Computed example of a mutant assay.
Amino acid sequence: MDADFASSPVSVLATLQRPPAGVWRQAWHRFRRNRAGMIGLVLVTLVVLTAIIGPFVAPYDPNDNAAMLRGASNAAPSARNWLGTDRNGYDVLSRTIYGAPTALAVGLGAMLIASLIGVLVGGVAGYVGGFTDEALMRGAEFFMVVPVFVVILAVVRLFGIIVVGTPLERIPNFNLMTIILLLGLFSWPQIARMTRAEFLRLRHAEFVEAARCIGTTPREILFRHILPNALPPLIVLVALGIGGAILAEAMVSFLGFGDPKSISWGQILFFNYQSLKVAPWACLAPGTAIFVTVLGFNLLADGLTDAFNPRVRA
C-alpha cells in the first residue's frame, strides 16, 4: 500500500512532464480504433497495390483478344481465364486489373485540381472577407447548381468532334484528361466552402494573433499557421471526392462517352452489358471493382471524420 502511494506521485509527475501528442498522432490513434476506417484503408491499399503491381502480374495483355480467334468469346471462368472472357475475347481479369490505374488517375487527378482551386478560393475568401468573400462564394454557388454530368457529356462529345484531324487527336488519353479536368473544375466549391469556414475560425485564433504581434507576414500566417490547422476536414472531403470522381467517370464511360484509348471499369461495363445474361462475369468483375474502390474511399473518409473530431477521446 505504501509502495503504491509512494510511486503514485512519480507516475503523475511523469505524465505531466510528457509532451502532449500532436494532432496527427492523436488522429492516428483514434483512426486505428475506428473499424470502418481501417476496413476502408485496407480496401484503398488493395486498390493502390493492384494499380501499381497489377500490370506486371496480369496474365494477359489487356488488348489481347486471341480468345475470339479460337472461338472462346464469353467463355466461363476457367484455369486459362480465371474470370472468363468477354464478348470481344478479352481476358476479364487482365482488363479489370488494368482499369485500376485509370480509376486512381481519375480520382486523384480530379481532386488535385479541385483542391488547388478550392483551397485558393476558400482561403482568400475566409482570410480577406468583405466584398471579396461575397463575390467568391457567389461564384462557388454558381458552380454548385450547374448540372455537372450533362456538361461533361456535352463537352466530351464536342471535343471528340472538334479534335478530329488536329494535333490534339494524337494526344494519348485526351478524352480521359478532359473528363479529369472537368471533374476537377466542378468539384472545388465544397472544398472552397470548407476552407473558408476553417479560415474564418482560425484567423482570429490566439496563435494567429500572436504571430501578427511578432511581425509575421500574412503569407507566413496563411501557409505556416492557418492552412496546416485547416487541413484535417479538407482531407476528409478529398477522400470522399476521390470515390465520387471514380464513380462519375465510370458512369460517363458506361454511357459510351469515355476514352476509347484507355481501359476503365465503366468502359468494360459499356462493352459487355448487352451480354449480361450470357456472360455475367464480364460485368461482375468491373462492377465489383467499382463498388470496392468507392466503398473503400467512403469508409476511409468516415474513419478520418471521427479521427479528426476532437470530441472523440484518444
Rank of each mutant, 00 (worst) to 15 (best):
L112W: 08
W281F: 06
P172G: 15
I226D: 07
G109C: 11
G160Q: 10
I53A: 12
N272E: 10
L202W: 05
P280I: 09
G37L: 01
P286Y: 06
M194N: 09
V106E: 03
D306E: 15
F142G: 06
A21V: 05
F159P: 03
I235C: 12
A6P: 02
I180N: 07
I53S: 06
A307Q: 05
G296R: 02
V42N: 00
N81D: 15
S275W: 06
G109F: 08
V312H: 01
V312I: 13
F143G: 03
L153I: 13
P232S: 15
D302G: 10
N175R: 15
G287H: 00
N34C: 03
N175T: 15
V119N: 00
S73F: 01
A58G: 01
D86R: 04
V312Y: 05
L202I: 07
P20K: 13
A105M: 11
M177T: 11
P167E: 14
W82N: 05
C283T: 10
R87A: 14
P9L: 09
A307F: 05
R313I: 07
A100R: 02
M194R: 04
G126I: 03
F291W: 06
S187E: 14
S187Q: 13
G89W: 05
S7R: 08
A27Q: 04
L231H: 01
I214P: 00
T15P: 02
E169S: 14
F297A: 03
L299W: 02
V236A: 12
A100D: 02
L299E: 04
G89Q: 06
N74D: 14
I221T: 09
F254K: 01
L182Y: 07
R313P: 00
F308K: 04
A250C: 12
G107W: 06
F174C: 08
Q267L: 15
G184P: 05
N298V: 04
Q274M: 11
L93Y: 01
S78K: 01
L158T: 14
R30L: 00
L237M: 15
A205L: 08
V236I: 14
C283K: 01
L176C: 11
L222F: 15
L83S: 07
H225K: 06
S275A: 15
G129P: 06
M38C: 10
V44P: 00
